[in-house]
Design a protein around this nucleic acid. Structure first.
Lengths: 120, 120
DNA sequence: TGATGAACAATGTGTTCATTA
DNA sequence: TAATGAACACATTGTTCATCA
């Protein structure tokens, strides 16, 4: 068992929740995360977000569909990669989240122990 | 800024507190930590504890004194390395702890955000 | 076996670079 | 510049090995 939860797993958790709410694409979710975490002084790196998405595809949780971003291809031909759940992806995600929850609680416990044991 | 606090920093914090309470040696503190963390399913590795102690020496917080463990050298000639604060070590440690406290709170915040945002 | 430490290997992450229909 | 991705380098950690009185 590792010391604390890995950044990858942490990000995957948020990405799953984002896809639950609405399918989206990488750059977009990255921007949202950056915004969300601004108050915490944490800037999720691009690379980690993409890596997390790729892993979720590898694990059969999400699948990719390419799509043009804009409405008029003659104006906007930027291609984006949309992510959404596979057939059993939602179930898989549910299990993953459950497992991560346990680890989160364990980590919070460890950190709180440090906060109480080492400060008068 | 890193994602979560490093294991090294986490362990250093506990080691400092141990030395505050009573000077000790590595193997002993390692054993105590193992015991303390058992309920959390976390086993602090030897290597990290020793590395943490060495770093604290490097940083001028602690200094080492070698000593024979037992009372009778003809029976027990095991040599141990005792750690205690340098002259300004206590002050340095105090500053370090303050800084770690801020990071701990930040990390707890991040983990709690994950727990609230991703679970209904 | 207790105690200390170093060497080495693996992993995770940060930074930079490449590409774009 | 938005968007995706890979390559590469680095730091932290885990595992193993060495030594010793």
């Amino acid at each position: 068992m590792a010391f604390l939860i890995a950044q990858r797993a942490y990000i995957k958790l948020f990405l799953i929740t984002k896809v639950e709410q609405q399918r989206g694409y990488g750059y977009q979710m990255l921007d949202q995360l950056k915004e969300e975490f601004k108050p915490f002084g944490y800037v999720p790196p691009q690379s980690e977000v993409y890596r997390a998405l790729h892993e979720l595809v590898q694990e059969g949780v999400l699948y990719r569909t390419k799509q043009l971003k804009g409405v008029d291809p003659s104006v906007d031909f930027q291609e984006i990669v949309l992510y959404q759940f596979t057939d059993d992806g939602y179930e898989k995600a549910k299990r993953y989240k459950k497992q991560v929850k346990a680890d989160l609680d364990r980590c919070i416990g460890l950190l709180q122990k440090a906060a109480t044991d080492n400060y008068a």
